[in-house]
Structure formats: structure tokens, C-alpha cells
Nucleic acid binder design. Sequence first.
DNA 1: CGCCTTCTTGAATATTATCAAAGAACGTGG
DNA 2: CCACGTTCTTTGATAATATTCAAGAAGGCG
Lengths: 244, 244
Amino acid sequence: MKKLRHYIDLSDKDRELLAELEERETAFTARKEIYTGGDDNDAIYVVKEGWLHSSTVLIDGRRQIVKIHHPGDIIGFPDIAYEHVTTNLVAAEDCVLCPFQKSALVEIFRNSTKITSLFFALALRDQCVLIDNIRVFSRMSSRERLSWFLLDLISRLRVTNPDLGDMMRLPLTQAEIGDAISLSNVYVSRAFTALTRYGFLERVDGKVRLTNERKMRELVDFVDRYREMDTSWFDASASKVKRA
Amino acid sequence: MKKLRHYIDLSDKDRELLAELEERETAFTARKEIYTGGDDNDAIYVVKEGWLHSSTVLIDGRRQIVKIHHPGDIIGFPDIAYEHVTTNLVAAEDCVLCPFQKSALVEIFRNSTKITSLFFALALRDQCVLIDNIRVFSRMSSRERLSWFLLDLISRLRVTNPDLGDMMRLPLTQAEIGDAISLSNVYVSRAFTALTRYGFLERVDGKVRLTNERKMRELVDFVDRYREMDTSWFDASASKVKRA
DNA sequence: CGCCTTCTTGAATATTATCAAAGAACGTGG
DNA sequence: CCACGTTCTTTGATAATATTCAAGAAGGCG
């Protein structure tokens, strides 16, 4: 998995372990509901192709999208702590997933303290990201929310694709974006036209180009949580555990 | 630590390890800023006495409180993944903390897979809690936000104090509560009077009594993430790691 | 070509923020 | 123990922001 190698070196054995997770493949068509909140959660997924999103539903029927998943992401981590899944998983477009059992994860925990530590670190990083999201999606204006959302997406894509540039595919409807950044679809549209008018972005057939990323980052005081992490502490931990 | 024993049994050795974390003690007076975003993060804290909160600051100077810390909580977990702390820690009242080094955590990771797994599970649980918070604080009405906030607090307090009943101390100003649930202090006040009028709560000198918790839970579709967790998977993991 | 979904734009409405001021509670020092 | 200053809470009025409803435009797909 390219995504993990971005953060640490992996031994051959580690790679073997991870490769096992990607043995099986299942394809899903766009809009397909893969699981629903309350289902038993025995499966975790690695994304091979396509975008998906996890969401929860409010009492009044509105939907809150919690995370957009890209190729290379692992889906279902937070749910490990509970018996039932807490979210709905939907394919935003046609996609391919590699499902594996919770128990396969245990296998990894048993055999590689390095990967365990990395998974731990990723869980902590995701906490920071969620904290950012609370700040952004409950306090900032519509234009700021959309800016953060786009910056967040492109930063994540750059982890696996450093040469991405200023343009990315955006296979999401405005209603979906709204569900992700806590806005109505109508206001997402207005935010898009506003940011376009400011000269911050351009839209060309399903793609978005950030034409003034620097200004956009300033606008929302953007922090990239994906590019770098402090891995020193668990390197130490890992090596020490190996000795023990 | 009572809080951890709620979830799993701890061996004598595990207890020793955890006791080491609580060796040193430092007292802080109310309103004291213990650390500020951007500081080097070498210290993690266990709360011995008093309430505190971690917050981030928006560009316009407003504050977003990310988490309220109670006795028994560990402060600073999400920041482990980064070199600098990402939040501000402030004492909401006079309190006593037990600081320890990141490296002491490594010591634990080395010596107890059980505690490691539990910490991992707690990190995943906190992710679920943060996801709940996004849903609540960015989508729900002021009264619903306040309801959720109070239910969340009392549920957490019950983990260490099962006989708590329907009443709890609330050593926070309305401005602080507002910063936590993304409302202005004025609107927190209005939400309080509204919930009082509905017969959901009473306030008596710094304490809150939830007079109709059942209805309050229904109102917001409350999910208690603290009472139970699925620990079976890492029990298995722990025992397997020990054999390895 | 026509249907369906998505996007855009306008108008009316709702919710919350902000500003302002008064009342209550609290702590401190005399 | 009281007076005073400070902080916190409450209430009212106004302003800002986003929602909802509705209708028309633009694409995509059969």
C-alpha cells in the first residue's frame, strides 16, 4: 500500500501481511449502499478503485457524510471498537474494494508491531482531522467550509500522487458535498460561484482546479495533517517491542 | 485507574505500569493555561482532580472547545501523532494533573499489549465520539446541542461513578459551553431556559439535574459510546501477541 | 428526442449571532 | 460582614447567515 509507505519503511514481511489484506476483490456500482448503520461489522475494506463515503443519518432524515474514502484508504476503523457499524457506506462512483475480516487485523497486530503502531498513529491523526472538521464545519462560513473541504481532499490525494498539481477529479454531487460540510445543496452551489468569482477555483467537466491555493489556504488557515506525521515515537516503540 | 478497569481486567503488572504514570503531581489554579497550540509536546497528562478543556482557536479569535476532561481522563493523545500540540489546554477549575513523558507511553507499549490494545480501542472510540459531535454541533438546533452535551457529560461521569443519579456538577461558564457546542453564550442561556421550560432540567447552584433524561435522549437520539465497547477483538489480539 | 438528475437563481423564512444593557452571583479587601 | 468591582447570566432588538421552496437551465443517458 503506497499510502502507508509514505510514512514509514516497510519490511518484506510487513508487505506480505498487507498484501494479504488485498487478496479478495469486490466491485460495486455507483450509488450502491455497501453497508448500513447497525449491521454486524465483521468486514473492513481497503479501497482499490473509486471514491466512497461514510455517513450517518440525523433524526430528521438529513445525512452527515463523515469521511470521503479514496483509493488506498482503509474503511471501517472507528467501528472496530463496537459490535455494530455506526455509519453507512456508499459508493460515490463505480469502485473496487478488498474486504477482509476483523480477525485479519488481529493477525497483523500479532505479527508486526510496526504496522500496529502505524495504524495507531493513523487513528490519532484521524482524530486531529475530525477535530479540524468540527472547527470548520460548525463555525466557519459556507465559502470557508467549501475551501477547507477542497484543500483537504487535494492534500489527501497528494499523499499517493505527489505530482497531482492544482487539479483534481471531484466525483461528488453538490448534495453530497453539502452533506459532508453541513450545508444545503443550494448553498454549496452559491459557495462554488462565490469562490469562482474570487478567482480561487475553476470547474471543468467534473474536475476542479484550485487557481489560487495559497490565498485559499490563508482564508481558512489550512493545516495539512496528511503530509507529515511524527513517526519517531513509534519507531522507537516498535524496535523496543521487537527486542522484548 | 478506575476508568480503564471499567472496560477490562488488569493484571498486577498492568496496574504497576499505570501507577507509574501517576507518580508526579502538579496543581493548577482555575483559568490557568497549561499549554498552548504549537508548543512542543513532550508531556501527556492524567487528570487527578478537577475539570479542564482542550480547545482550538479560529482565525477570528473565537474558540472551539474540543473536549472536556474529567478526573481519570488522559489528555494529549491525538497530539502524539505530531511534533507540536494542536490544542490549548485550560483548567476550568482548580485541578491536579499527573504529567508524564511520551517515552513513558512507549514503555507501556513495550510491556503490555493489553493496555496498548485498550489505548488503541479508546482512540477509536474517541473517533466515534468526534463523529457524533460533528453530527450534533453542526446540524442540530441549539436545544438539541445542549441536550447532547449534557447527556454526554453525565454518561462519561457515570463510567467512574455508576451511582451518580440524575445530577452533576457543571463547573463551566455558559461561554465555555458555547465554545464547546458551537453556540454564542447568549444562545446557550436561551437554550438552558428553553430546556428548563420543557421540564428537561433544573439548575441548582452550579449543578444540573436532568429531570427527564429519557425524553432528552429521545430528542437527540442519544448514543452512549462510553458504557460499553467491543473489547473481544483485542482480548484475542492481546493473548495471541503474548503467545507469539 | 425526451426523461431524469444535477445545478443555478430568486424569494420568503428560520435560526443563530451580535450588540447592548440590566440583573445576579461571586470574590476580595477593608 | 459589608461594599465594591468583576464576571456571569438573562433579556430585548437588530443583523447576518443559511434553509426551504420553487422554478428554470444544463447535462447525461437511453
